[in-house]
Design a protein around this nucleic acid. Structure first.
Lengths: 250, 250
DNA sequence: TTCCCAATTGAACGATGTTCTATAAGGGAT
DNA sequence: ATCCCTTATAGAACATCGTTCAATTGGGAA
């Protein structure tokens, strides 16, 4: 296919092969698909080009700049669907809940891209301006203006987006130990060393706690529902902000 | 120096040069220093070896395994100093505050390593077991036991550690636009397109909000104090957890 | 037809993570 | 003192990666 035109000379043929091939959007979409499939760490421009049946240089032609620019483009393309579709008639706290629930479900659709999206949200760039505006407008309606606006905004974005980023971070892959010991053994060893004199745990509490740690350890990265925890976090933050909202004078 | 022993044969000399050179701890410490200095993205094993005046293979000998194992070792070495030094006589909520304040100041000492530490905290591995135990014990004393323990733990670790990770994430470096436009221009364009009909902002609110966005955008990554926001987040979470603590029966 | 520009190619450069074999220094046993 | 084994290093090699660049071509405009 690609090498269909046989060339008698030793020189390999160069130049354009097909009609008008790729578009920038196609490149970005293919990149997202590949990250979703193989993970962010395993993503490479060359393999992206390979999967598109194209030379690596093509990526650079369509997406000007470097790999990080591709990442920015990816973030923008995903978070672009975040704006709009919000009933402005709702009370401000309900609006905030919905904004961040939307954010979470959106990010959950591309778990491997989560770190990129987190960084994007933090940077408050142009791509997510709608999103930022929605949050700021809700906080404004809730009485958070002037100097009070900024900490409230940071708390919501940092806390909630940070939560989602951590929630979706892949568990470490590496070896548990230089020997053949697995996490279980190491954990058991560690628990055996717990000195009730040092740790302020009643002997009744200890088994419960260590058991809980076990559960925590093993359910992380699995299909544990962080959803309940997210809802609790949302509740604590928004109810708290509501409770201590500055009085609106004007 | 390194090639001091002249070798007449064409073969280059190999093998040990000095007495008993490096230790694993030295390698890890040098890696931390280098990440602190040049950033996590620019860190490479080869340059680490170069800065130690040593062959790349030496790193693999001292730190068995791969680059990620080195990262795990780094995380462990930093968060190792997180345990202990906590007055068990304090009320549980004060203990929680102190634990997470300690975490934040510790991570702030190595901002470039923050992503690694965040992942470590999420994984609840062996290295930070003391830390986890302290949090769980405080929550236990606060009445969070059984099924109530896990969401509370997730909220604290996910929210607060996630906040710190996001807070310290480096701002994106890339180009603002394919043209020569900077962030400012793009932002001005975007603001000019805001349709007051679409966005539920009073004309009085709009300038305030856009102004705030500007401030947010430009102060991120600079020396803005996220400390106040962190304290607010801490307050919201812990006061909230205190307010809705389950009643302790036993 | 001629010319220009969008789109693509292959090759190349330097750097990286990782593995492998060779090798030298030191200590312990004989 | 000699031999040997373990420890700690060197250097080379391999595959891959991000990025750049000159060369090339097809299609549309003039």
């Amino acid at each position: 296919m690609t090498t269909g035109s046989a060339d008698k000379s030793g020189k390999s043929p160069r130049g354009r092969a097909a009609a008008v091939g790729l578009s920038k959007n196609q490149v970005v979409a293919a990149a997202v698909a590949q990250i979703d499939e193989k993970g962010l760490a395993a993503f490479s421009l060359r393999e992206l080009a390979r999967s598109l049946g194209v030379s690596p240089a093509v990526i650079y032609w369509h997406v000007g700049g470097t790999k990080e620019d591709l990442f920015a483009e990816i973030s923008a393309s995903i978070t672009g669907s975040l704006s709009g579709s919000l009933d402005a008639g709702m009370p401000w706290d309900a609006r905030l809940r919905q904004v961040f629930r939307n954010y979470r479900t959106l990010v959950h659709r591309h778990p491997a891209v989560a770190p990129l999206l987190g960084a994007q949200m933090k940077s408050n760039g142009v791509a997510n301006l709608d999103w930022v505006e929605t949050i700021l407008s809700a906080l404004h309606d809730g009485g958070y203006r002037g100097d009070a606006l900024r900490p409230a905004f940071n708390v919501l974005v940092g806390g909630l987006a940070g939560f989602v980023t951590m929630e979706l971070a892949p568990p470490p892959v590496g070896k548990p130990d230089s020997a053949g010991k697995g996490w279980e053994d190491l954990f058991a060893e560690r628990v055996a060393q717990i000195d009730p004199e040092v740790y302020p745990l009643t002997s009744a509490a200890l088994p419960d706690i260590t058991n809980r740690i076990f559960v925590l350890r093993w359910q992380n990265g699995a299909d544990v529902s962080y959803g309940d925890s997210f809802e609790l976090l949302l509740d604590l933050l928004i109810e708290g902000l509501k409770a201590r909202a500055p009085a609106v004078s004007s």
